[in-house]
Design a binder for these strands. Sequence first.
RNA 1: GCCCCGGUAGCUCAGUGGCAGAGCGGCAGCCUUGUAAGCUGUUGAUCGCGGGUUCGAAUCCCGCCCGGGGCUCCA
Length: 488
Amino acid sequence: MKSMGEEKKEEVVSEALKAEERLRSKWFILTPEGEMKPVEEFDFTGYEKLRKFAEYEMRKSRVVEREPPHTALMRSLELADYEPASDPGNLRYYPKGRLIKSLLEEYVTQRVVEYGGMEVETPIMYDMNHPTLAKYLHRFPARQYIVESDKDRYFLRFAACFGQFLMAHDATISYRNLPLRIYELTRYSFRREQRGELVGLRRLRAFTMPDVHALCRDLEEVKGEFRRRFLLSMSVLEGIGLSREDVELGVRVTEDFFKEHREFVTSLVQLFGRPALVEMWSERFFYFVLKWELNFVDALDKASALSTDQIDVENAERYGIKYMDEDGREKYPIILHCSPSGAIERDIYALLEKAYMEMEAGRPPMLPIWLSPTQVRLIPVSSAYVDFAEEVAGRLEGRPVRVDIDDREETVPRKIRDAEKEWIPYIIVLGEREIGRDRFPVRDRRRGEIREMSLEELAEEIEEASKGRPFKPLPLPKRLQRRPKFVG
RNA sequence: GCCCCGGUAGCUCAGUGGCAGAGCGGCAGCCUUGUAAGCUGUUGAUCGCGGGUUCGAAUCCCGCCCGGGGCUCCA
């Protein structure tokens, strides 16, 4: 670093980035029925979010002067924060944020493994001069972090492709092994995005991305696999707490591929069930011929890609990834690149923005119950009932339920208010009236009412809402008095 | 990376050339609390960092760092 005086280092700008500058696209809306119209001719009535997404992508309207709501929320809920001592876009996660991120990571991994992904782990940095990698760098529209070590230069990975492809290159693969699904949850992927692009949890320089590749034998196999992964991705988003209505489908395709496989592209839109935005390229600038993304449109009408999958027709050859076919000949597979959830941080961003939009609509903002750091808050009316609260907590703790106790010397209204500000889904006030009883007055945030419930009923309701999702215990001490304040 | 705006107590912010402030939080005491903020006291600031102008700088100038917005881009 200290010899950087005269020899000013030229920035490594990938050819793909340069290519994008001269890229000209045509924009269409494709309906599930297979009708395709130029965007200008489509009637967006009833498709407000799609209109916003299309406008965002084609960048006609952009009048945002406001900070996105999720940045204040990520801090006030003590989930994540900026870390001034790091490079911008590298965040810190507080215990509650780490819990949520960790649950999401585990959930996505679980779903990918069910789908057939083989989980691996690969290095985060690679030799700039590696001949194969150097070429790939130029086919990906991203900027890199560079790490110097002695005289060598390494770049930090921006996806899991490198490690997995190098692994696949060395593997002996038979047609019987296809489709071959390799998975890694990258913590982290690094992209040195431009300074002004970075914002909160939406766009980072270090992010966690599940990345599952599938090596396929031919286009026929690709089509089946691609559809399967599309369904998986929609299902994963729904499991996270982002419904079909929360996202818009974007399809990017080369003109040639679309002409030959229009029916296949339409079938994806059919699976989605609503019209999709299609960007068509006259030539192939990147390594893929077809790509889709599920995009979240936030409170400021900005669109961000979450799930995505791509059909890569270049990299098998570039990396020398081959399989032995039935006829005894070595062939190059077609590679699919999929992130079923998109970046985990971006999922949290979407959940927070969604909660904010709920709040604007007059409903209580919430996180999905399975992700709420505290699911049940017990509030003893005075210090005399803290032991009683412990006993009640004990009855819930055998269940997969995160329960804590506000043992602070505060008034009940105050403790209620603080619990509500934390978006805690269930609150139970405990005093003389509850002793010896089977049913408790449970303050239900979603319904906005107090329900008489047994602990068994409450635990079942939480379990039901968390079904199929992983569980982790409280990320903080059970008693509030023992907790530090991380923000404010 | 470039352009615009901002950075004052742990947090949110007022102060725009002349003694660094408020609310919240923290701490202490009182109160022993019943479904969204109980009362009193107290603590707390290298005014982002470095340099300059000035009798005097949070305030004016320069550079840097960090944040927000835009260009652009994506998971």
